[in-house]
Computed example of a mutant assay.
Amino acid sequence: MYYLSKELYFPAVETSSPEGIVAVGGDLSPERLLLAYNSGIFPWFEDDEPILWWSPPERMVLFFEDLKISKSMRNLILKQKYKVTFNTAFREVVLNCKKIARNDQAGTWITDNMVEAYCKLHELGTAKSVEVWENDELVGGLYGIDLGHIFCGESMFSKVSNASKIAFIALAKQLEFANYKLLDCQVYNPHLESLGCVEIEREDFLEILKL
């Protein structure tokens, strides 16, 4: 296991553990986070753990032509019950992702330090959010890192049924229009699969990242 020092450096992702841990430690400075994402690496750890940096052997991604929008979702979007905005409530989105209950997790991996780190990246124009509103209430959204040709999704939340799907679809449509290569979703879950995401090999992801 590689332990990071103050030096701004990550080892090659090919040296990671079988599950995809590249390194341990370091910090969540904007410079280190941007180096990580541009190297195909992201932080993921619990509050009582050291910082763990991951590049899993399989990467969950969305190629925009594969986006799945069910008939019921299309009808819901057409009703315009919800309003979608971009980058109007970044901190609120992150805090909702932090506190929302998840069936497959005992707690949250979004620590207080991570909240501040990503808010700093938002101030620098790199971290961005999508918000879903019902009247004036924030009921869903997501946030992630914008690399200019790939958007690295970090987390999403829903307070009402399908709100996170609406945010995801809106983001995918915007990125496709802007000629992004793909939407990075990091690791598999069935919710993402239902939207058309697939797993690809790490090597293939890194090749696209270099384009």
Rank of each mutant, 00 (worst) to 15 (best):
M1A: 12
M60P: 01
V139Y: 06
V139C: 07
L52A: 04
A36E: 04
Q174S: 05
L124P: 04
F151L: 06
F205I: 10
E134A: 08
C119W: 01
K173I: 06
V24I: 14
P18E: 09
F151C: 03
F177Q: 09
I21R: 09
L76S: 08
I166G: 02
S164E: 01
A101K: 15
G40R: 10
K99F: 15
R91H: 13
S158M: 13
S17P: 05
V13S: 12
K99G: 13
L211V: 11
S39C: 13
K81F: 02
K159D: 14
A167G: 01
L195W: 04
R102H: 08
P190C: 10
Y2I: 11
A127S: 03
G141V: 07
I200N: 00
M60D: 07
P50R: 14
G20Y: 15
A89N: 11
N103K: 14
I69Q: 04
E46Q: 14
R59N: 07
S194K: 06
D146E: 09
W44T: 00
V198W: 10
G25Q: 02
L171T: 07
W44G: 06
G40H: 03
E92V: 07
G26N: 07
E207Q: 15
K159I: 11
G20L: 09
T85K: 00
R32A: 02
Y82A: 14
V94T: 06
F177S: 14
K79R: 08
V130A: 06
M1T: 10
D146F: 06
S72G: 13
L142C: 09
K173R: 15
G26D: 06
E116H: 02
I21P: 13
G40S: 10
P57L: 13
A163R: 05
S16F: 11
W109C: 09
R202V: 05
V61Q: 01
D27W: 07
H149A: 05
K120P: 07
